[in-house]
Design a protein around this nucleic acid. Sequence first.
DNA 1: AGCGCACTACGTACGCTGTACGTAACTAGG
DNA 2: CCTAGTTACGTACAGCGTACGTAGTGCGCT
Lengths: 238, 238
Amino acid sequence: MAGRAAVPEVIWARPERTGRGPKPAFTRADIAAAAVRIADAQGLDAVTMRHVAAELGCGTMSLYNYVPRKEDLYELMIDAVGAEHEMFEPTGDWRADMLRNAEETRAIMHRHTWVPRLMAGAFGFSPNTLRYLEHCLACLEPLDVPAGTKTELVALLNGVVTTYTGNDIATAERTRSMPWTAEEENAVRMAYLGSQIATGAYPRLTAAFTEQSGPVDLEAVFRRALERVLDAFDPERR
Amino acid sequence: MAGRAAVPEVIWARPERTGRGPKPAFTRADIAAAAVRIADAQGLDAVTMRHVAAELGCGTMSLYNYVPRKEDLYELMIDAVGAEHEMFEPTGDWRADMLRNAEETRAIMHRHTWVPRLMAGAFGFSPNTLRYLEHCLACLEPLDVPAGTKTELVALLNGVVTTYTGNDIATAERTRSMPWTAEEENAVRMAYLGSQIATGAYPRLTAAFTEQSGPVDLEAVFRRALERVLDAFDPERR
DNA sequence: AGCGCACTACGTACGCTGTACGTAACTAGG
DNA sequence: CCTAGTTACGTACAGCGTACGTAGTGCGCT
């Protein structure tokens, strides 16, 4: 028994294979793929050590040979979907390129609705995360600002993408394990909101709500937020 | 046995007291306060139904008379800290007022480090949330843009505050239940990052990292992000 | 060549979680 | 006054992460 270390550990620093002993039955990629499959099909809460092990066809505790803590399994998952990013050749138009990156991130999150929840915590620097960061910096090459400002742009933009997409998904998805539909829940929440507005305690809020006609176009709201963030970094727009 | 409804429910719509039966021993505020006390002292994960009940001095299952699901307990907590917001008289300078609001939110989150994690999910409209929204709109009265744009400003700004403060807290806090310190963990992560950079696979990332000298000033980064978001909505700055 | 040890595999078990359900006590409305 | 709706809460269950112990495997070193 080598003993699971009671010392900080980054899963990416731990070598996947170290000489001695029987050949491992799986790779990290196998495990990540299994976890992703479960999360996609049954939601993040269904990603338990037991389920992942069953999906792989091995004993529960065998997983701990590959992944010291469940949290690390999450890191594997994040890294796995990070591979879906298309690292295209920068066009020279940094705004267009960054918009494309953001839209692609949003698309990935819509494919894997559990991603925002995992990204909400502090995130490690997995290999694919680093590759994506590097790609963004490559896209920002034409932008004439200090390197530090560029990383701040990437951070801010990614934060906005995660927040907005995460909110959209959460409102649509919260009912996954509930015995009622999203529409029913939304109706109840809206009814309550209406009753509060009717009290007259929130005049400006009421105005804002009654002014808008029809349902909100989440996609348009998202795109406007992106444009505004980019504006804030664009020397030609200020 | 009235039966816990298998129908959508907003806790704020359910009346706190309905005629019949023995007098409840606690108010919702009591319960929220107990949960907040535990979360502040021992972290969000220590907020279990059993712990909260023990803190209140009642049986575990008695809590379910006040709160149909644990998720609703979280809503109570969010609303409780929402009361800490100072709803000051708008000064007429919307930028300064919104900055103040943002800094205050950040301060609340630093007092209650579990708030960002709870805010990350889709959030309901608790009474204090509505009051805060109304207050923000009051601060934005002098800004000459459509009401819809104002709500988008509030949403974007709040999102940025939550993301940034949440990240800061998470990196500092992740070691709460770990057998090592935040410094140790950070050192290991940085060592790994250094080893990756040393491979030369990420030239631009390397440049960005080596360029900056000394540790990052999180507070300054946060303030810059705020300014940029406000810039994007300021007619005089574009 | 062969021994030893680091490694994989995994069953069992523990302490913890949210909460369904049943029962007893209580009190306001008809 | 009675009865129906409430509060209170003990018990129980399914499920979680993971500590620990044991058995088998095959590389690296002497």
